[in-house]
Design a binder for these strands. Structure first.
Lengths: 168, 168
DNA sequence: TTAAACTTTCAAAAAGTTTTGAAAGTTTAA
DNA sequence: TTAAACTTTCAAAACTTTTTGAAAGTTTAA
């Protein structure tokens, strides 16, 4: 396979994975494009490479910035803005975990905490089943939360090292 | 909060979480409903509770079965089919991890393996950046894969015990 | 100032996904 | 067999999300 074809495949696959994980396809594709660009590139070049409109490119870039996955860069003497992606996969994973925790896990834990407080008679199977499912899921979610918390502060080698050693 | 309201909130929240994670809302809601039902219930009851059509209920139930999250049950002397969900959260998590690995991670790893083989001149920054990103992501994906593999065979207490102790 | 160069917004259109419901299919009891 | 009870299918409709592109806004250099 040639480099050009490889790049295409990479952008396509990253986009598909993104859309399966609730990140929109274009956003994942722009991220992929920046991941394989040695130099920062402009909105214009992104529009061109991916055949997307200016509006779409702009919104997507802002989203990626708010996710902490890319940054703007100014070049002296130029009006244009250049964008580049952090290429460190471990940083990317932490950034994504952090955002998803904030946007998805936290609100659910909050609701589960409330639902755990619902009172009822444990002899009533309706209530007993509800209560058990809610508290079990709550415990599980909190374990996931603690693991993410640790991951956010961990070094990559230590993290995988510990996990994989433990699982040997 | 009353039990009835709690149930509503639980179904709603589970549905929302599902849709953020690429599982369709109705599917997550039907799953939630079954999670808090002490007894197996019929298609009819599900349609009624969630105000969804017969076709939708049927497709959703089949999907949930293919994900290994619920099962059919026959009651002696009755034509109707009853459905119930495995209530063990650890089993649910493993089942979901297993399916998503098969449907999403495996295909990506396959492509990354191919892309890692693309040849080029490392002095060419275009190629060097592409190659580094691809191989880094590939390594990362393989670590995730190994972790899931282990999780699939692990007992819940051992798994969280090891992870949380390690992170203390 | 001004105007050129660039970025951002947002309503409408396109694309994608989910749901409906009626029709077709299947199974069972008599 | 038959018909009643139930399940499955699928094309069309409803709904949701994403994208477009023209207009408005902003910044900078002269």
């Amino acid at each position: 396979m040639e480099l050009a074809e490889g790049k295409q495949k990479f952008i396509e696959s990253w986009g598909k994975l993104g859309s399966e994980w609730g990140i929109n396809r274009t956003m994942a594709q722009v991220h992929a494009l920046l991941l394989i660009s040695p130099e920062p590139i402009t909105t214009e070049e992104i529009m061109e490479s991916l055949s997307i409109s200016r509006g779409n490119a702009n919104m997507t870039l802002r989203d990626l910035i708010s996710w902490g996955l890319i940054e703007k860069q100014h070049k002296a003497g130029e009006r244009k803005e250049y964008f580049y992606a952090d290429k460190d996969v471990w940083n990317i994973a932490r950034q994504v975990a952090k955002e998803r925790r904030k946007r998805e896990l936290d609100p659910v834990v909050k609701i589960l905490d409330e639902l755990s407080k619902v009172n009822g008679d444990l002899k009533n199977p309706e209530f007993a089943t509800f209560h058990k499912s809610v508290t079990d899921i709550n415990k599980f979610a909190k374990n996931v939360d603690k693991t993410i918390e640790t991951m956010l502060h961990a070094e990559e080698n230590w993290f995988w090292g510990s996990i994989l050693k433990m699982f040997k």
